[in-house]
Amino acid sequence: MTTHTAQPTAVQWLVVAPEYAGQRIDNFLRTQLKGAPKTLIYRILRTGEVRVNKGRIKPEYRLQAGDSIRLPPLRLAEPDEAVPVAQALLQRLEAAILYEDKGLLVLNKPAGIAVHGGSGLSFGVIEAMRQLRPEASELELVHRLDRDTSGLLMIAKRRSVLRHLHQALRSEGGVDKRYMALVRGHWDSSKKQISAPLLKNTLRSGERMVEVNPEGKEALTLFKVLRRFGNFATLIEASPITGRTHQIRVHARQAGHPIGGDSKYGDEQFTQTLRDLGGKRLFLHAFSLKIPLPDGQLLQLEAEPDEIWKHTVEKLGA
C-alpha cells in the first residue's frame, strides 16, 4: 500500500453560508476538516488558532450567517487514507436501517458500535454510512448515542433536514425520544422524574465522566415503570427532556437504581449477575422516536432490542 505524507494546508478563510447558521463551531469544523481528529479541532479552538470575525470563540459558539472564520495551517490525512469499514459491519448496519427517504435515514444502532470515529477508533456508524451511501455528500449525525447504547439513531442526508431536526430537538415537545433501561432494585412508581444538574469532567486518562453538580447544566429525565423482576431489577422507560451527555445513566444512579452493564456509573454486582445470565451489554436502548418531518408529517418509529437483551429479560422473568 502506498503511503502519503500529508502536507500542511495554508491559512484558510471561510465565510459561513446561511444554511450553517445556528450550528456549533466544533461540529462545523468536523464536517469541514475531513480527516481531522476531534482532539486537533478542540486544541485549535482552545488555543485561539481558530478565529471568528477576528476574535477567539469557545467550542459551543453557534455560527451566524456571514461569520468570517480563520483556520490555521493544518496537517491532515489524505482523503485516500480513510480506513475502509469491514464488509460484515456494513451489511449489519444496512440491515439495521428502519426508515429512509431523500433527506433522512434512521437505524437501530447495535450496542458496542460508536456513532463516529475518534478516541482510538478509526470509524463509527457515520463513517460506515458514508461508505454505504457515497452519493449522499451531506450525511451527518442528527444526534448521538453512547457507544454501548443501542437503538434509534437519526442521520440526516441533507443540510436542510439536519437544520430542521436540530431546531425540533431544541424546541419543547419537538422530538419525543424514549429509552428502555434495566435498573437495579425496586423502582418506586411514584418516582416519575429526576431533575439534577450535570457537569462533565475529563479524567487524566482522557475518559469522560459526568456527575451531579450544582455548577452543572440543568437536566431533567422523566421515568415510568414498565415491568418489575421482584426486588432485584426494574425495566423502566426514560424520556430525557434535556439532552446532556450520559444523562439517563447518571440520573438512574442518582435515583439509587444504576443501569445494568454500565461500566462507568453502574453496580458491579448487579452487572455481574446479568452477565452470568448472558447479558453482556449495557441495558439502555432507544426504543421509540416521534419526529416532525419537514413536510409536516409526524414520523413514529419503534426498535426492538437485540437477542442478548431479550434472552436476559426472559431469564429474569422465569
Results as ranks from 00 to 15, higher is better:
Ile155Gly: 03
Ala196Gln: 08
Glu138Thr: 09
Thr31Trp: 09
Leu74Arg: 10
Ser239Ala: 12
Glu172Phe: 11
Thr9Trp: 06
Glu140Ile: 07
His143Val: 09
Met1Ile: 12
Ser288Glu: 10
Val225Lys: 03
Arg24Met: 07
Gly243Ala: 06
Leu107Pro: 01
Met1Val: 12
Val210Pro: 01
Arg56Thr: 11
Glu140Thr: 14
Arg30Gln: 15
His4Trp: 06
Leu90Thr: 13
Val250Pro: 02
Ile308Cys: 00
Ala255Phe: 03
Ser171Lys: 15
Gln297Asn: 13
Asn27Met: 06
Leu152Glu: 02
Phe283Lys: 01
His4Ile: 11
Lys34Trp: 10
Ala114Met: 01
Met129Asn: 11
Arg249Cys: 02
Leu203Lys: 11
Ala168Ser: 15
Thr47Ala: 10
Arg43Ala: 09
Leu29Trp: 09
Ser119Cys: 04
Asn231Leu: 13
Lys264Ile: 01
His164Phe: 11
Tyr99Ser: 05
Pro18Val: 07
Tyr42His: 12
Val250Ala: 03
Gln193Leu: 02
Leu105Tyr: 11
Lys177Trp: 04
Asn201Gln: 14
Pro258Thr: 05
Glu19Lys: 04
Glu211Ser: 12
Ile41Leu: 10
Glu135His: 14
Pro294Gly: 08
Phe232Gln: 14
His166Phe: 04
Gln254Phe: 14
Leu63Val: 06
Lys34Gln: 14
Ala128Gln: 11
Phe28Arg: 05
Pro134Gly: 13
Arg275Met: 08
Pro73Gln: 08
Ala168Thr: 12
